[in-house]
Design a protein around this nucleic acid. Structure first.
Lengths: 341, 341
DNA sequence: ATCGTTCCCGGCAACGTTTGCGGTAATAAA
DNA sequence: TTTATTACCGCAAACGTTGCCGGGAACGAT
């Protein structure tokens, strides 16, 4: 109803739409008086250009698509926070898609994002995704893509990730220095890049300190519910059970903590626990949880900055590379070293 | 580059675009053979209609705007989760805006949402917002609006909220029954509807059990950082300090818990603590936190369902009303009753 | 008087799609 | 044979905006 168009202004001022258009963007070939007239009138009627018409004309949308497995996950919501803040300032909108850890939905989301003509795509892969040909197809069509957190290196895109190796190394080293010898690693699906990197950091630390790498101490979860119980049970039933747990995600850390509570295992007296997490309440847990924090917001920010750079400079942008954002080890009660008398 | 348009199909098949368009939507005035030809060809080339062109023509976008104070807040991210799931199934996209608890950004977000021609708006007000004339203006222009959680009743829209009164009543009643007499209420800005409702529930419970209502026990926070420390200090310095804390948000509950820890106040031995929250790790806190849980996801779902109803039935939709979603009291360690000997 | 400039502006097409209207054949009814 | 009906399809406008092209007026230079 009340939306003012360039035509309305043209009609009211008895000039052509092209003149109005040029006046509005301050073209040099418009009379100063006319310009002021148009500007003043547009201001008064609160004229706002129709971005949809622009999109149609310029075949772009000033929107970027963000595909994440789950919004209701503190890591991703923080990352989106970082993304949205930057994008907003740069004049881009953010359209959110959730893959719900489903390959199919992820592919459908991409199709939708393409249909909507997003100018670029930010994606963190679903845990089901091992084949990335759908992504490659879009990339080959010229869509700027930046991966973050859960990335695939089979794809030649810019990737923004936490320093998973370093974080895992630091966590494992810390446990070892606190006197732990049998360190279990509860982690996420093995085909994810971050899983491999964390596992590598874990192994490197074990090796450096002369501890054996025992495959039976490494357990892979999905992102399902209540899967830690059985994992913990199996580990504790081993002939030589673990004296520490290093978990690779928020959910696993919390699940593991809950499972240990239920089984009346004392932390850190019986076992240590450290997470690779993003919780803001880790220090309020029982016990306060040692953790390797991932700078989720910063990852989001860097990712969207790179993406916009890619969108706007297209050809002469920095070549694809992987950016590692440092992680931080925070030591709390759950990994206190226990003196064996 | 590779996007197929109706024109491409028309050219290839040597027919007009109107015929293609009609064939694609199965118009009766197109020859069966032609239809099949077009459908088959469109399928083969993976034709997908350009939603932007549609939007321009029909002056709608099949997108709904969601304005929340903060994405990185478990309540809102869960609500968005619910929203996105439903919207997706109904063919709508979700465009997210964060007001960052700023009135100005909220207003700017609305403007942007309007510019983008969202078909409807879902909003939870920023804590700074007391004047809602900007919202009213949009509503009077015919934009379907549904408020959720932080709503203003100065506006005649459908509102979806948790049962704040009931939840606060239940929490307060529970504390009283556990033997507490001086119950402090740490809450959010007083001009928010949810604040008033929770306060009313708190007062009603006090009254029902014959306890006096003491204004000095009620403290209003903003949504800033680290504001609970001073509040807790002031309360504990009262001549007759509280023996229980009832907090009105995730952040206040966690902040209060942290502040009490720092001051070495034992929970629940010295004071009780119960939150009005949405944390999924409340049972893992130290101590396990009693809480009134808000069904965030359900609130989001109901809100978007109502909004879509409003969008699609416009005139004959249900009249504005306020829907209260029940809350649930979960009792844990932090409000254990302490036997005074 | 003619030509070249400069300044300012309007017409038109285009982006992809839908839709009202008109038109052409073929067939049926008179 | 003429007329009405049916079945099928194309033309063109419209949504809001931009940009190319062209053109008129005014002016100075030749």
């Amino acid at each position: 109803m009340s939306t003012v168009t360039i035509k309305d202004i043209a009609r009211a001022l008895n000039i052509s739409t092209s003149t109005v258009s040029r006046a509005l963007r301050g073209s040099y070939e418009i009379n100063q008086e006319t310009k002021e007239l148009v500007l003043e009138y547009a201001e008064r009627l609160n004229y706002r250009p129709n971005p949809i018409a622009l999109s149609l004309k310029e075949n772009r949308s000033r929107a970027i698509g963000v595909i994440v497995p789950q919004i209701a996950n503190y890591f991703f919501s923080q990352a989106i926070n970082g993304i949205e803040a930057i994008a907003y300032n740069r004049g881009y909108h953010v359209i959110i898609f959730q893959s719900q850890e489903s390959y199919e939905r992820e592919a459908a989301n991409m199709q939708q994002a393409m249909d909507r003509k997003v100018d670029g795509l930010l994606i963190s892969l679903s845990s089901e995704t091992s084949d990335v040909s759908h992504l490659r197809a879009l990339q080959e069509q010229g869509l700027p893509i930046v991966q973050f957190d859960r990335v695939s290196h089979e794809l030649d895109t810019t990737c923004i990730v936490a320093d998973n190796f370093g974080g895992a190394f630091a966590a494992t080293e810390h446990l070892i220095k606190a006197g732990r010898q049998r360190i279990a690693h509860l982690t996420i699906p093995p085909w994810l890049s971050i899983t491999q990197e964390r596992l590598a950091g874990y192994r490197a630390a074990l090796e450096q300190y002369g501890l054996p790498y025992d495959e039976t101490l490494v357990r892979y979860g999905t992102f399902g519910q209540n899967e830690t119980g059985p994992m913990v049970d199996e580990l504790l039933a081993l002939p030589s059970p673990p004296d520490a747990f290093f978990t690779a995600s928020d959910r696993l850390a919390l699940g593991c903590l809950a499972s240990l509570h239920q089984r009346h295992i004392a932390i850190p007296d019986d076992v240590s626990l450290i997470g690779f997490t993003n919780l803001n309440a880790a220090d309020l847990l029982n016990p306060a949880l040692s953790t390797v924090v991932q700078p989720a917001q910063e990852i989001g920010q860097v990712a969207v900055e790179r993406l916009i750079e890619l969108i706007e400079k297209k050809q002469k942008a920095a070549p694809p590379s992987t950016v590692k954002i440092p992680t931080r080890l925070i030591v709390r009660e759950s990994t206190r070293s226990v003196v064996h008398s």
